[in-house]
Each structure stands twice: as C-alpha cells, then as structure tokens.
Design a protein around this nucleic acid. Structure first.
Lengths: 154, 154
DNA sequence: TATGAAAACGATTAACT
DNA sequence: AGTTAATCGTTTTCATA
C-alpha cells in the first residue's frame, strides 16, 4: 500500500460512490488505474466492505447506551457463547473485550428504555457468567464512524 | 419509510454496491423502483453516506482504546472547544457525551502506545476543562460497525 | 403517487499498448 | 499505467395503474 492507495482510501472512506475518474483527477491517475487499485485493495482485505450508513433515529433507534459488562473470569468456557450471543444480537452495534476486571464494552442501540431493559435482561438470563453491568446513556453523539486516518506520506 | 425500504436498507447496510436489479429480485421490485427508493432515502437523509470500511490494522492502527474523559462541569464555556477538538482529531473515531460525572466516552485508534500517549497529552494540554481520564485497551474487537437493525414488519 | 419497460447515459471492466 | 472498447449499472423517460 503506497501513498496513492492511502489517498484513494481517504476519499472512499468518506464517499464510496465517488467515480474512479474523479478520484483519479485528485490523485493524478487514470480512472482505470484507480479502479485497479480499488479492486486490489478489496481482494487484499484492506477494504473490508462498502456499506450504507443510515441514521439510527430515522430507523427508530433513538437511544445509544454504553454498557460495561463484567464477566466471571473463572468460567472461560462460557466466554465463547457470550461472544456468539453478542455477535447475534443486532442491537449490540459494537463490542470490545477490554483490560480490567473481565470487562466487555458494548455500544447498544435501542428504541427506548423498555427495549434496552429487555435486552439487558436477556443478556443476563442467557449468559450465566455475566456478573453485573453498568449502563451509561449517550446524551449526545459527538462523532461516529469507522473512519481510519491514513498517513498521506510514505 | 415502508417495509420494502427497510429491506433495501438492510441489504445496503451490508453491501452498498449491490446492484439495484439484484436488490429488486430480493424485495420484488424492478431495478428502477429500487433505485428511486434509494435516491429518495439519500435525499431524505435516511441514508447518511455510503462509505468504504477499511481494516485499521492494515492501516497501521493496531490499537483501540476506550477512553473515559471527565470534564469540569463548572466550565461549560469550554465544552464547545472540547467538542471541536474531538471532531478535528482523526484518531478519535467515535465520541459520546454520557450520563455520569461530566463524562465523555471516546473510541481512539492509535498506532502504538506512544502514539496514544501523545494524543492524550495533547488532549489535556489543549483542554483546560479535562479533569482526568481513564483508559481501557481493547484486547479484542468482537464487533464493529454502524449497522442499524430495522424491523422488517410494519 | 408509484411502478415497470426501455432508451440514454455514465461508470466499470477487459483487452491491448 | 494509459487508452480504447465492451459490458454493466444507473438514471431518465414514458406509459400505465
């Protein structure tokens, strides 16, 4: 991945529909050359996907919660099923396993508080290793996205 | 937004490049009808963007941190500039203002620990209202994305 | 007002230099 | 990597329900 690839990716991360010819004009390449680089980066897995981003509010998901989930580290055999549970749960948008007391951090979308409560009850009921969780409500979303900064040099 | 719109969005949230004709085959509409609905949803702001998702590791951003930032609520005049600072900082990928003791939650990408430390030092140096912060390192990323579940009924 | 069919247009892909 | 030609997808047009 060279400097031009990075510039192409910086553009595509904001607008995946930008025509190769326009990108080429910005980076000083023909449309075909740009297109070839894009195809290559898809194949190499640098570009993981091209997706539509929709407004959660318009989709009836007005609430965002940041949930810290503490699990019992003594029962590692239950971790795989918890991971699967998280993967299968569409309202859990993002999840990380983090340093600390066996903690997971979840980004959860919900229609309302009842919707969220129901999800959390299922989380606890379905996963015996969940010891407790702490919820923080997002009062405002300052920034969202998957945008990765790319050093334009080198 | 009707049931078919929701089905179209569910598809586009996974693959924004899917041809309208293929989507039409799934939802029982012609390519033109699907295309018109997509254009309408872009105009209405339901579809916020169509973006390429890239692998942060391949982009040299191997570390993800979840940072809780505590700010002094007594100085609300400094909040606007903190928000701008966050917006302008490319390594801060996501940010929410959350319930609790004047807390922000940040998702931060970094090349390495030094890179991260430098960012946090700038955060504190540039924003006098930042009282303290707590960092958790993402040991594994279980789930990422902007995918919003859409009730296929109604 | 929304659709499907078909023409016109534009972008991507493939072949060749 | 660039240029051209062929292919494919989108957009527009138009007739219809």
């Amino acid at each position: 991945m060279d400097k031009i690839d990075r510039r192409i990716l910086t553009i595509l991360q904001k607008d995946a529909r930008r025509a190769a010819e326009l990108i080429g004009a910005e980076v000083g390449l023909s449309a075909s050359a740009v297109q070839r680089r894009i195809v290559r980066m898809r194949e190499e897995g640098i570009i993981l996907a091209e997706v539509a981003v929709i407004d959660p509010k318009r989709a009836g998901k007005a609430l965002t919660m940041i949930v810290d989930v503490e699990v019992e580290r003594e029962r590692p055999e239950l971790l795989a099923s918890l991971k699967q549970w998280i993967a299968a749960e569409p309202c859990i948008q993002e999840a990380w396993y983090v340093t600390g007391a066996g903690d997971y951090v979840l980004i959860v979308l919900a229609r309302d508080v009842e919707d969220f409560e129901a999800l959390m009850q299922r989380l606890v009921a379905d996963n015996a290793n969940v010891r407790r969780f702490q919820t923080r409500v997002a009062l405002s979303t300052l920034k969202r996205g998957m945008w990765v900064p790319l050093d334009p040099s080198s």
